[in-house]
Computed example of a mutant assay.
Amino acid sequence: MPAAQRHPTMTDVAERAGVSASTVSRTLRGLSNVSPGVRARVEAAARELNFAVSRHASSLVTGRTGVVAVLVPTLNSWFMGSALSSLGPMLRAADLELAVYVIPDLAERASFFERLPARRNADALLVFCFDLTDEECARLDDLGMPVVYVSQHAGGRPSVYVDDVAGARDGTRHLLNLGHRRIAFVQAQGATGFSFSSHGRLLGYRQALAEAGVPRDDSLVVAAPPEDKRAVVEAIGRLLSLREPPTAVFAEQDELAASLVRTLRRSRIEVPERMSVLGFDDQPVAEWFDLSTVAQSPSDMGRVAGDLVLALLDDPDADPRRHVVLPTRLIPRATTAPAPGPGADGASPGRGEANAARNAGRVP
């Protein structure tokens, strides 16, 4: 059938423009490794032939699927929602689709790594917030595609993450600068996939205390799931039962910090007059509670991860071990204040208030 009587193909465009079919594919998919002159010739040829790029035809020429896969532990989180909301449009603008694999438990995880569906269905993989074993990392290394780790550091592999250690160090310094010396740290127990961040934040807290000459006291480090009201009450109770209770609490995430503020206020412990509370993340709940926090931007992380995966797809010579470390920033709000002084009105919370904290758990 003459070319005028059938749908034009990528080969027709290539012949008209005097380039290869793979160059036509790269040009019409908006990839960056095409010179302006060649791009203009290809686009003109496509217009003259009334050619529209087909993803299937493009994949036959380039061996690509036009899909970027994302591996996440959950979609039910502020972090994932913000990161994917910025990543998705960015990939679509590059004519790439987003395929999301949710791995909420160990059984799903084992199945994913046994089948590795991304090997057949995607050109690149973004791994969000997983603590992978050496064997799992090796399996991903064998995929033969770019694999970018997001919100985590992966040695020798492309990674995008915030400096959790520096962020927690800055947050603890904020409390130290307000005169607090008994500062508790509350970990978000059971936060699936985020132990890399958790370890970094605890390390930053301890570094700031050591820097200020404050002796390490492991009794000030407790853990509780943010959604478990009773566990949060019991964690506060343990801290208030100490011989020297804290005057400030640093929670490793905002949801947990908000739960601590609620528990303290139900116990008639004023925040921040008697107890300062600091969070980490700057989730929407932080603004609702007027919560002082250490802010990170998952939207920026999604965009940077998108830039990195596009660079790895477009340029075979791009650094396959590139790390991008994003900054955090302190957001002081209404839940942190100078440490209370001695005296009846400014005394630190005592043992009696530990019972009040436990009783607060009975409030509906």
Rank of each mutant, 00 (worst) to 15 (best):
L209Q: 14
Y101Q: 11
H153V: 07
N177E: 15
G179A: 11
D123Q: 13
V100F: 04
G144I: 06
D142V: 02
L98E: 07
R115I: 07
G155K: 08
R201Y: 03
V147L: 09
E135M: 03
F128L: 13
A118C: 15
P215I: 07
G193L: 08
N177C: 07
P117E: 11
D170Y: 03
E114S: 13
H199G: 13
D164E: 12
R157P: 12
G193C: 09
P146V: 10
D141H: 03
I103P: 00
R109Y: 02
A118F: 09
A208C: 03
F112H: 04
V186R: 03
S151W: 02
A191K: 08
Y101N: 13
D217W: 09
V160H: 01
V102E: 11
L116W: 06
V222I: 08
F130R: 01
V147F: 07
V102A: 10
V102W: 01
G190R: 03
G179R: 09
G179D: 11
A107H: 06
R115D: 08
R181L: 02
F130P: 01
M145K: 10
N177G: 15
C137N: 09
A208K: 02
V222L: 06
D105N: 14
Q207E: 14
V160M: 01
V148F: 06
R182L: 00
L106V: 14
A208E: 03
V162T: 15
D142M: 07
E135A: 14
L176P: 05
T172N: 08
R115Y: 00
E211Y: 07
P117Q: 09
I183A: 10
L203R: 10
M145Y: 00
L126D: 05
V127Y: 05
A154S: 10
A168E: 09
T133M: 10
L125N: 12
R157I: 13
S198D: 15
G213W: 04
D164G: 14
P158K: 06
P117W: 08
A223N: 10
V160I: 06
N177L: 10
A154N: 01
G167D: 09
G171H: 00
F113A: 12
F196N: 10
V162P: 02
A124Y: 07
L175P: 05
G200W: 00
L175A: 07
V186I: 15
S195Y: 01
G204E: 06
L143T: 09
A188E: 14
P215Q: 08
L98T: 15
L178S: 05
A212K: 02
A124S: 11
C129R: 13
G144L: 07
D217S: 09
D131K: 11
T192F: 12
R139D: 14
V148E: 04
A110H: 10
R206L: 11
Y101S: 14
T172C: 13
D141M: 04
V222E: 10
V147E: 02
S197W: 00
E114A: 15
L178G: 05
D163R: 01
Q187D: 12
M145P: 00
A212D: 05
